[in-house]
């Protein structure tokens, strides 16, 4: 299970994941909806770890990509999952020509080179794994590489960011307070309709009218959150619907695929959403 957002390791260099590969060269499209950009810039100056909260597909990752580009820092993304171990983050010894060679994990890489390290969906990682980030998040700013007996001091530009979706409010998957209270939190929600329309237009490559309808659909489906939809429909899905439409799929069919069936398996809900789509398109 590959958990590291990495490029292929060149055979010559075992530490092949070069930090340069993590630089973002073109500006990622992002529409600001509040003070999140200035807040993040302050956090970056002050080196305070940041927690991005919000439902799925509302633009957390995109925001961070945009910020990394804006601040011209490399962005190391780690998608967290249950089997993620501390050595997956910090690094491990590998064998080469009868010798053990240390290979830095993505976290160590980021710490050394002053990258922005992004732990995506941090709750998914086991609690004993998330503990390794603790010394990085307070004034010590160090990462112990226990196997090597080293203490890595973080590069002055290093910043740790986690994302977290409060929607999954299960007892099992909640951030420990000892972890979450090390971060300052920026809240994300679905963008307001005007901004969302701009996003759907740009990303979905649709005209203004179609984007407006898609956003309207999004709002109406989000109204149904009490009715068994665990989360509202994400901006991402609206963008998908837009892309399908711009690729020539009929609007109703595009929405069926990207909205109705993607959102729910419940027959009544599907019927209701289908009717709403029919009303809008």
């Amino acid at each position: 299970m590959q958990n590291i957002h990495s490029k292929t390791t060149s055979p010559k260099n075992l530490n092949g994941i070069a930090i340069e590969d993590y630089h973002i060269t073109t500006e990622p499209f992002y529409v600001s909806t509040g003070n999140e950009i200035s807040l993040f810039e302050s956090a970056y100056r002050l080196k305070m770890p940041v927690l991005l909260k919000g439902p799925t597909g509302c633009g957390k990752t995109r925001f961070l990509e945009h910020m990394a580009w804006k601040l011209s820092r490399p962005l190391v993304t780690i998608a967290c999952h249950e089997d993620l171990t501390a050595s997956d983050l910090v690094g491990r010894y590998l064998l080469r020509d009868n010798e053990t060679v240390w290979q830095d994990g993505p976290l160590s890489l980021a710490v050394k080179h002053g990258a922005i390290c992004y732990l995506d969906e941090a709750v998914e990682a086991r609690k004993d794994t998330t503990v390794v980030i603790h010394p990085l998040t307070d004034n010590r700013r160090i990462l112990p590489q226990e196997k090597r007996g080293l203490l890595l001091e973080a590069h002055p530009d290093f910043l740790l960011v986690m994302s977290y979706n409060p929607g999954y409010q299960s007892v099992m998957k909640d951030l420990k307070h000892s972890t979450r209270q090390r971060f300052l939190a920026i809240d994300f929600t679905y963008p307001p309709s005007k901004e969302e329309q701009a996003i759907v237009m740009e990303e979905g490559q649709v005209d203004e009218n179609t984007a407006e309808r898609l956003v309207k659909l999004g709002e109406m489906v989000r109204n149904l959150r009490q009715q068994g939809l665990e989360e509202g429909i994400s901006t991402r899905l609206l963008v998908y619907a837009g892309r399908l439409i711009s690729d020539g799929v009929l609007p109703k069919e595009a929405c069926q695929a990207a909205v109705t069936r993607a959102m729910t398996d419940d027959m009544e809900l599907q019927e209701a959403i289908t009717e709403i789509i029919a009303g809008i398109f």
């Binding site: 709002e219 109406m220 149904l224 009715q227 209701a272 009717e275 009303g279």
Partner: peptide, 15 residues
Amino acid sequence: RNTLSMICEALLGQP
């Protein structure tokens, strides 16, 4: 009834 009330809820934004 369920389907109908969901459509109305989606439109109005409240149950």
